[in-house]
Amino acid sequence: MKINGPNHSNFNPYKKQVTQQADVQRQKQSQQDKVEISHQGKALQESEQKSSARQKYVDEIKAAVNDGKYQVDPNATAKKMVDFWSNKG
């Protein structure tokens, strides 16, 4: 039987595994999430910029709703819904 003192090189046979796990943990902590928007996505964002005419229209509707003067025609709304869904098929 061979007995080595406390200073031999293989005192902890799992040391390599422990250091590898620690390295993996450090790598995980150093990584950060990234978000990249494609050129197509950027074009969509730019096209969604509010035009002044559209903003004026929205403001008029908001004012009418707040004053209680905004009226919705349920028949026209139903017709548009039916037309929309019948064209999808």
Rank of each mutant, 00 (worst) to 15 (best):
Q25P: 00
M81T: 11
K28G: 01
Q17C: 01
K80W: 07
R54H: 10
L44A: 13
D23F: 07
Q49A: 11
V65G: 00
T19E: 14
S38E: 06
E60M: 10
R26V: 12
S86K: 15
Y70P: 00
E48R: 13
I37N: 01
G89H: 03
Y70T: 00
N4Y: 15
G41N: 07
S86H: 07
Q32P: 00
T19F: 08
D83R: 08
Y14S: 04
H39E: 15
D73F: 06
Y14V: 03
S51Q: 08
G68A: 00
G41Q: 09
A64T: 01
D59A: 14
P74F: 06
K80T: 09
K50C: 02
V82C: 02
M81W: 03
K88I: 14
K79S: 07
A64V: 02
A78M: 06
N66I: 00
I3D: 05
D23L: 09
N87C: 05
K80Y: 06
A53M: 11
K69M: 08
N10H: 11
Q27R: 13
M81G: 03
P74G: 00
D33I: 10
A78Q: 11
I61Q: 04
Y57F: 13
M81Q: 09
D67H: 06
D67E: 15
E60R: 14
Y57L: 06
E60V: 01
K56H: 14
N66D: 12
S86D: 11
Q29V: 02
Q29I: 02
N66S: 11
K50H: 06
N4H: 15
T19W: 02
N12C: 04
V58A: 01
K69A: 12
A76T: 04
Q17K: 07
K56M: 11
A76H: 01
W85N: 09
S9G: 04
S47L: 05
D83I: 08
Q71Y: 09
Q32D: 08
H8R: 09
D67M: 06
D23Y: 03
A78R: 01
Q29K: 10
M81S: 10
V65Q: 07
K34I: 14
A78S: 04
P74M: 10
N7A: 10
L44M: 14
K50D: 09
S47K: 11
K42T: 08
Q32S: 05
A76K: 10
N87F: 09
A22T: 11
Q49P: 00
S52M: 05
K28T: 07
Q21H: 05
Q31N: 07
E48L: 12
D59W: 00
T77G: 00
N12Q: 10
Q25N: 11
D83W: 01
R54D: 15
G68V: 02
Q31D: 08
Q27W: 01
H8V: 03
Q31T: 09
V58Y: 02
Q55A: 15
A63T: 13
I61V: 15
A78H: 03
D73C: 02
Q29T: 03
F11N: 09
T77M: 13
R26P: 00
Y70M: 04
Q40T: 12
Q21M: 13
A53L: 12
Q45H: 13
Q20L: 07
P6E: 09
K34S: 12
G68T: 03
K79N: 06
S38A: 04
P74I: 06
A53G: 10
N4W: 13
N87L: 04
Q20E: 14
V65I: 15
K56I: 09
K2V: 12
K80F: 08
N7R: 10
Q31V: 01
K56E: 15
Q71A: 09
